[in-house]
Design a protein around this nucleic acid. Sequence first.
RNA 1: GCGGAAGUGGUGAAAUGGCAAACACACUAGCCUUAGGAGCUAGCGCCCAAAAGGCUUGCGGGUUCAAGUCCCGCCUUCCGCACCA
Length: 846
Amino acid sequence: MPEEKELRYDPEGIESRWRERWAADAELYAAEARTCGKPKYYVLEMLPYPSGQLHMGHVRNYSIGDALARHMWMRGYNVMHPMGWDAFGLPAENAALKNNTPPRDWTLANIAAMKRQMQRMGFSYDWATEITTCLPEYYRWNQWFFLRMYEKGLVYKKKSKVNWCPECCTVLANEQVIDGRCWRHEDTLVEQRDLEQWFFRITAYAQELLDGLDKLDGWPEKVRTMQRNWIGRSEGTEVDFFLAEEIDQGSGVRGQGSEATRIRVFTTRVDTIFGATSVQLAPEHPLVTALTAADAGLKTQVERLIKEQKKARESGDLGAIEKHGVPTGHFAINPYNGELVPMWVASYVLMEYGTGAIMSVPGHDERDFEFAKKYAIPIRRVIAPADSNANEPALPFTVEDGVLVNSGEYSGLTCAAAQKRLQEAAARGGFGEAKVIFRLRDWGVSRQRYWGTPIPMIYCERDGLVAVPDEQLPVILPEQIEITQQGGSPLGRVPDFVNVACPRCGGPARRETDTMDTFVDSSWYFYRYTDAKNDSAPFDSATARYWFPIDQYIGGVEHAILHLIYSRFWTKVMRDLGMVGNDEPATRLFTQGMVIKDGAKMSKSRGNVVSPDEMVARYGADATRMYALFAAPPDRDLDWQEDGVAGVSRFLGRVYRLAMRYAPAAKAGRGQQAGAPEGVSLKLLRKLHQTTAKITQDFEGRWHFNTCVAAIMEFVNEMQAADAELAAGTVSGTVIHELLRSLVLLLAPFAPYLAAELWEELGEDGGVLRAPWPRSDPELAKEDKLEIPVQVNGKLVTVVRVAADADAKTLEAAALGDDRVRARIAGKNVVKVIVVPGKLVNLVVK
RNA sequence: GCGGAAGUGGUGAAAUGGCAAACACACUAGCCUUAGGAGCUAGCGCCCAAAAGGCUUGCGGGUUCAAGUCCCGCCUUCCGCACCA
């Protein structure tokens, strides 16, 4: 007999063939209409910035989402699995400067390249709903939303101190400043500038954004905690202290001082206010500015504090910086007891938080204590432990469940009770009130850049600020424009763009030349997928109500604050506009781990980047994505080892050859009736049904795809080990058919190309994607015999082989009947026998 | 400083309180030969020449018949937050 030529697994051949066939089938990954009757499932991976190159982080992210999408299709869901491009942003302008390419051309070329890479990977995206945020058909709706929010008072313009990145030459939102540095330029310190800016009133939703987190139990706790911290809700009291001199000279009536002499402080511990021995103002507090105007000496000192504060902000370790202060020589009156306390300027008080002024209670606050010690400010005890027998604790005593002392009429009250009474007194006396403050501040969206959505506003000489009317949308971003590194908004240098007739009076007017933060684009993009071609609205409300919320959102944890808080805000705004029915964009969020190489995150600067193209060329897309799922559980960091990819590729080769070898037998046995399986057949079927159960469970719960792949490998190993029996015809064609058919189905979410190929080789039709997911028969999955470990005093001695359903008595007898066990317990008393049927036997002896 | 996650072979890792190291990678030995980034077989935590045996999940305690897993204390690494009043 001529030697049979061994088949070679040729990923390149298989994958290119199927890529062509899939590309020709426009409906393959399309979601069905909402009337289809199937349950819907919206799985979404975060849309990428089109940098031009897919990196391994993307591949990992999309491999997870793709496995899930394919699995859900096979489970019979109506699946939406879209992809798009977050296509505005600074890199396009930088590239334009460097290569003299228009940002649009550069961006669109990058998109084309990355789309090719994605298609090469075989991801199941419905390209008919693809969105590209830099195209007018998309960004016109940014402008439309801007106008709706403007109408509702959720957009406003104000001059304020803003973060300026000298590298980006633009303003940044607070969320884009990390440790005083730009989120895109780690080495660049952000400057503070006074500029007129557009803001979204995200703070109007601060409380709801916070409360909503409690209900988002499908989100990682880590992300929820980060958002809670960012929103930073704080309950306390605002209290007015007044400059003593002014009150003496004026009416003399407490609580009616002028605004210029009022020092409003915020405190969470108003119960300690009788212990306030100074008030501390931020160096940039308006009152300090007023005082320094008339006092050159003070001015010099305060400027030093400002410099110090700036340095502290940049250092990233604020707690370690020594606190400095300057006495102003003025005094303020504590409204509760009329006491005069000195007024200081302190480097540790921030103008941007609370009121920019605090009361300093050194007896009961760590920082105030440190400060008072340094400057010999009196320290007073006003809180004692609730337990009156306790020793007097050392100061500062910061617990909040004590009792007030030395506090006038409030002495003896608990802290909580005193807070309430003191707030009531402040409200009555008109010198304060209970107050909730948030750390979250409004979202500054103006960018002095070109490559972004034009802000649809017009400045008319006669009518002032005029919104662009809806019918004039979109305000098109001009394309022929010279990009330079000059300051100011590039659009300001395009007269055709700037000069416009006022929509109201027709007179001469100027357009707003700032563009929107690109996070606006990504705050609502996932709604657009549901109705991507709509040219009369951002999307159809009924369609969005069908698809939303997103069932599973998958992306990197680096967006925990930025994108994920903005898009929650946007959803609530759209809900209040009546456009959507959901309060939150996504029920479940999954944040995958980073891809690591040689102990560090893959990055160009470290030179440890592995290109997906290279992997695909060498090992195929199936092996590359399957390795991305196999090397670590998806939530953990993944160490990229090329040998591992090679290993997965070899495994797929074994699967291919095994399936091809027995495909004829399987085809012949297809649809035939089989008797009760026994011997090798039973053994293989049992393993198959165990594997199916394991993988099905994992998709439903813990998503440990690494052990799913391992389970498939175990199953294939077992088939391989039975190769002789299979070749000898011991196993019927019907059983072989079930084994191979199910193997291909289980493989389909992880290695879709090979699965498609083998599905066809097995003579199945209709495509593996729409084939029903295999069911595990619990009876078939059950073992009939088990090896039960036997321990003596908790130490393993041997295993006994017994029937799987053996009861405790049988197990005990089997254990005691074992020679090794007998030898071990000879001459000793068996004190206790622990039998866990199906698990183990433990003999406690003395 | 506060909060979170993690720490298991040479490497990536596995283990609803019940046989620690599944599945891979690397390595070693053998086989095969259309010499391939191939395939097949076997070995592979540590100690001991081997067997028998003993030891082993960052460190120290505890709970339990039984702990990588639960509890307490500590160490290390990573991530997030932080003069937030």
